[in-house]
Design a protein around this nucleic acid. Structure first.
Length: 557
RNA sequence: UGGGGCGUCGUCUAAGGGCAGGACAUGGGACUUUGAAUCCCAUUAUGAUGGUUCGAAUCCAUCCGCCCCAACCA
C-alpha cells in the first residue's frame, strides 16, 4: 500500500498522546467547523484529514459542525456541498452533524448569566464609535460610556434587544474584560449584534446573533470537544476563547490548538476570492476543474486517495508554509499510475497513409490495458491503411535528439508495427497535410528480426475506425506563484491559457463509450477523466487531470 | 514603537543534548514498444552572534527576519 493507514505524527498528535498518557482525557473528540458560506477547498481538506484522521487513529470521533452564526452569508446550498465533499474525501461524522445555530438558546442563557454577574454590558455605541475607541496596537482603548450600567439595566436592555425593540446595529452586548489589554481581542469584545436577517436554520426566531468568539468555544464545550484545532490566525483569540469558557459552567474545557494553514504555489486558497471568481464568471462555477475547491478537483479527476495522501505528506506544523504544487501533482500521478488503464488518443491528428497496407484490410492487435497487470484485461487496436499520428511526433527537419518520425526515419507505432516515413505532402502554406509511409510487416508487436534499434515509440489510431473526442486541456489558473499577494489583484494574474479545448482529437474505439468520471491514461500525454457533466458515452469529453512528466520537453528539446 | 507566533536543503517536513533523515524539486546515468513508470548516483539546510556543555539544530542570552491582531467576519 502506498497510502498509510495511519497518518504521520505531528505536534498536535504529540499533545494528544500526552493528554492520553496523563489521563487528562480518556477519549479524543475533534470537530471540523466550516462556515457554510462557500465551497470547501483543498485547504479545508487539510483540516478535514487532520481532524477526522485523528478521530480515526485514536478511535475517537469527529463532529461536523456548521459554524452558522452569521445569517447574512450562509446558504443551504453550501451546507449540502460541504457534506458531499467531506463524504467524497472518505470521512464520516457518524451522525454527529451539528449547527452552531442549534446552540443559540443556550448561548443566550449564558449571556444573561454574564450580564447578571456584571461581566457583560449593553453598549449603545455605533460600530464606528466602538472602532474609534478601541485604541491602537500601542495605546489602550477608552471604556464605553455605557460600560458601568447596572446588571439590572443591562439585563433589561439585552432582553429588549432579543425581543427586537432596537434597530439593527444600534446596540451590542459586549464582554467586560479589559480596554487596556495589549491583546485587542480582550478589549471588551462584542458578543451579540442586532441583525434582522433570515437564518437558514432558525428562520426569523432571532434578531441578535452571537459572534464567532462567543459561539465557538462554547459550541466546542457543549459537544465535548477535547482538542479544537484551528489555523494560526486564531492564536490571538485563544485568551478570549479561554476567558469565555471560564465564565460558564461546563464539565470539560476544550483546548484550542493552532496549526499553519495550507498554501500552494500558483494557487489561491481564499474562499472569498474563489467566490469572486465564480461570481464574476471568471470560471464556470465552484466546480470548474481549474478551481482548487474539492468539487473542482473532483471534477478535474483527482481522487480522494490522492488528496488524503497529499495531506499526510505535507504534514502539520506551526510555521507558515507554501507547498509546491508539484508535490500535489506527483502524489496524484503516483496513485493514478498504478491503477488507470492506458489507451491511445491522438490530440492533434496528422494523417499517415501506409503504402504497403492494402485498403480495407484491418489487423486487430491485442494490447493490454495495463502492461504490468494482466488482470486489467486488454482490447483490440484496429490497424488500417490510413492512420493518424500526433502532429508533434513528426518533424520534417528533426532537431538534435528527436526520437520520433521524420522523412526516411523509422518509429515504433505503439503495440503495432515499425513505420518508415517515405514522403511528405504539404499544402500551399507549407503546412504538412499527409505522410506516406511503409511498415515493416515482421515487426508486429515485436522487434525487427535484423536486430536494428528503433529509438522512439509513438501513439496512433486508425483513421477510419477511431472515434472523435473533445479534450479539455487544463493548466494552472494563475501565472504567478503567489496570486493575490501584496497589492496585486488576482484577476490580473489569471493564466490566459488555463483552458485549451481540442475538438479534433481521435481516440481508439475502446474509449469512446467512457462513462462520466471514468479515468484513462492517454499514453505519452496524460491522465484524463470523462467530464462528470458534459461527457456522454459515444460523445466523450475528457478533462486533462494532469499531464505525464515530460523530461524531453523540459530539456528544451 | 504593544501583544501573540514562527525561523532546518529550492519546497514541505523529521530529529528535541549524541551520525542533521525522508518526500517533492533539480542534475546525471541505467532501462524502456509511454522521452511515462522503475532503478541507481549526485547536489543542496539548522537565520546571526555569543554562552553553557566532552558534545548544541536542540538549553540560555542578545540580535535579525517573517507572519498574525485595531469587522457588530470566521
Amino acid at each position: 500500500m502506498i497510502e498509510e493507514s495511519r497518518a504521520p505524527s505531528n505536534f498536535i498528535r504529540q499533545i494528544i498522546d500526552e493528554d492520553l498518557a496523563s489521563a487528562k482525557h480518556s477519549e479524543v473528540v475533534t470537530r471540523f467547523p466550516p462556515e457554510p458560506n462557500g465551497y470547501l477547498h483543498i485547504g479545508h481538506a487539510k483540516s478535514i484529514c487532520l481532524n477526522f484522521g485523528i478521530a480515526r487513529d485514536y478511535k475517537g470521533r469527529c463532529h461536523l459542525r456548521m459554524d452558522d452564526t452569521n445569517p447574512a452569508k450562509e446558504e443551504q446550498e453550501y451546507v449540502d456541498a460541504i457534506k458531499a465533499d467531506v463524504r467524497w474525501l472518505g470521512f464520516d461524522w457518524n451522525g454527529h452533524e451539528y449547527h452552531a445555530a442549534d446552540y443559540f438558546p443556550r448561548l443566550y442563557e449564558w449571556a444573561e448569566k454574564l450580564v447578571r454577574e456584571g461581566k457583560a454590558f449593553v453598549d449603545d455605541q455605533s460600530a464606528d464609535e466602538v472602532r474609534r475607541t478601541r485604541g491602537t496596537l500601542t495605546t489602550p482603548g477608552a471604556p464605553s460610556p455605557f460600560r458601568d450600567r447596572s446588571p439590572e439595566e443591562n439585563l433589561d436592555l439585552l432582553r429588549r434587544m432579543r425581543k427586537g425593540e432596537f434597530p439593527d446595529g444600534s446596540r451590542t452586548l459586549r464582554a467586560k474584560i479589559d480596554m487596556a489589554s495589549p491583546n485587542l481581542n480582550l478589549r471588551d469584545p462584542v458578543m451579540y449584534r442586532i441583525r434582522r436577517e433570515h437564518h437558514d436554520r432558525t428562520g426569523d426566531e432571532w434578531c441578535i446573533y452571537p459572534t464567532y468568539d462567543w459561539a465557538h468555544g462554547e459550541s466546542d464545550a457543549i459537544e465535548g470537544i477535547t482538542h479544537s484545532l484551528c489555523t494560526l490566525e486564531f492564536e490571538a483569540h485563544r485568551p478570549l476563547y479561554d476567558w469565555y469558557l471560564e465564565q460558564i459552567e461546563v464539565p470539560h474545557r476544550p483546548r484550542q490548538i493552532e496549526f499553519a494553514r495550507l498554501n500552494i504555489t500558483y494557487t489561491m486558497l481564499s474562499k472569498r476570492h474563489l467566490g469572486a471568481l465564480v461570481a464574476e464568471g471568471l470560471v464556470s462555477g465552484w466546480d470548474d476543474p481549474r478551481m482548487p475547491t474539492i468539487a473542482g478537483l473532483r471534477r478535474r479527476g483527482y481522487t480522494p486517495e490522492a488528496l488524503r495522501l497529499f495531506c499526510d505528506r505535507i504534514g502539520v506544523a506551526k510555521a507558515d508554509s507554501t507547498v509546491e504544487v508539484e508535490l500535489l501533482e506527483n502524489t496524484l500521478r503516483e496513485l493514478l499510475n498504478v491503477s488507470v488503464k492506458r489507451a491511445l488518443c491522438v490530440h492533434r491528428p496528422l494523417k499517415v497513409v501506409v503504402e504497403n497496407w492494402e485498403d480495407g484490410k484491418v489487423d486487430e492487435i491485442e494490447a493490454p490495458f495495463l502492461a504490468d497487470d494482466p488482470s486489467a484485461g486488454s482490447r483490440k487496436l484496429p490497424f488500417t491503411r490510413e492512420l493518424f499520428i500526433e502532429r508533434d511526433d513528426f518533424m520534417e527537419v528533426p532537431g538534435k535528439g528527436f526520437k520520433r518520425l521524420s522523412p526516411g526515419k523509422e518509429v515504433r507505432l505503439r503495440h503495432a508495427y515499425v513505420l518508415r516515413c517515405n514522403s511528405v505532402t504539404k499544402d500551399s502554406r507549407g503546412e504538412v497535410t499527409e505522410l506516406r509511409a511503409t511498415i515493416d510487416p515482421d515487426t508486429r508487436s515485436g522487434n525487427p528480426k535484423d536486430g536494428r534499434k528503433v529509438g522512439g515509440a509513438v501513439h496512433w489510431v486508425s483513421a477510419p475506425l477511431s472515434k472523435p473526442a473533445t479534450l479539455r486541456l487544463y493548466d494552472r489558473l494563475f501565472r504567478v506563484p503567489n496570486p493575490g499577494a501584496g497589492e496585486a489583484d488576482f484577476r490580473t494574474q489569471l493564466n490566459p491559457h488555463s483552458l485549451e479545448i481540442l475538438d479534433g482529437a481521435r481516440i481508439e474505439p475502446a474509449v469512446a463509450e467512457a462513462q462520466p468520471m471514468e479515468r484513462w491514461q492517454f499514453e505519452r500525454k496524460g491522465y484524463y477523466v470523462a467530464d462528470a457533466k458534459d461527457s456522454k458515452p459515444g460523445a466523450p469529453v475528457f478533462n486533462l487531470i494532469v499531464p505525464l512528466r515530460d523530461t524531453w520537453a523540459k530539456g528544451g528539446g
